[in-house]
Amino acid sequence: MSARHRLRSLGTFVLLNGLIPIRTQPLYLVNLLASPLSFLFFLTVVSHGRLIGFGITGGLILTMLSAGTGLQSDLTHYRHDLKFQDVVVASPVEAPVYVAGMALSELVYSIPGLAVFVVLFVVDGFATPTSVAVVVGVLLLVWGFATALAFTLATYFQDVRETFMFSPLISLVLTVLPPVYYPLSYLPGWAQFVARFSPTTYAAALVQGSVGQATVSLSTAAVDWGILGAVTAALFLVAAFKARWKEP
């Protein structure tokens, strides 16, 4: 496939799984907004507004993470219930083009969520050239590793119902337990150690550091970027070598 053909394919997947479904069910657009807005509301109320900033930065991360992990349900459904993956496999479309196209299509659903949190981010006075650059970089990495993880899992699931079980677990492990919605320092020492196993801990630390919610030294930030980048690269490698495009 030439580069032009790949781009055409990519655009088709965005249309097919992103824009067209919204025509039949516009509520898809607010779906990804529900969880982060709930957290924001909850944090704001219980902290009397003190943690609203964490609700905003956490909301950005959760929205992008959901855009990535949401892919697993769609891919599993398409693979098992509709045999769509088999149709795509037996065609000139390569796996990375399919995954990238489907991942971009999921991003369409997160646009309202991102828009809301970006507006809040700006209104709350967080937007500086540095923080914007950090947030964009972090969100891209979060979306990248979530997409790679979702694709790999989707090729192993035998039924779409398995994704219903995994989605809350992934959400718990990657957004609720790690300090995405609060500073790492709120956790006791042992819990901080455990939280270090979640890549979103580093994502949140970088975003929180960039807007002044936490103090992050340059060297710590460099380590955080390194770990986040390494995790993303590792999950891409897992997706490239372990995901089942062709069934064994």
Binding site: M1, S2, R4, H5, R6, R8, S9, G11, T12, F13, L15, L16, I20, P21, R23, T24, Q25, Y78, D81, L82, K83, F84, D86, V87, V88, A90, S91, P92, V93
Partner: peptide
């Protein structure tokens, strides 16, 4: 056309064919 395959239900009939061809480049 795999056995027991189904077209994506939210597409229109012509979109199933058209988008498949576009997908192939």
């Amino acid at each position: 056309v795999p056995q027991e395959s189904r077209p994506l239900y939210f597409l229109r009939t012509e979109e199933v064919v058209y988008l498949y061809l576009k997908m192939r480049g």
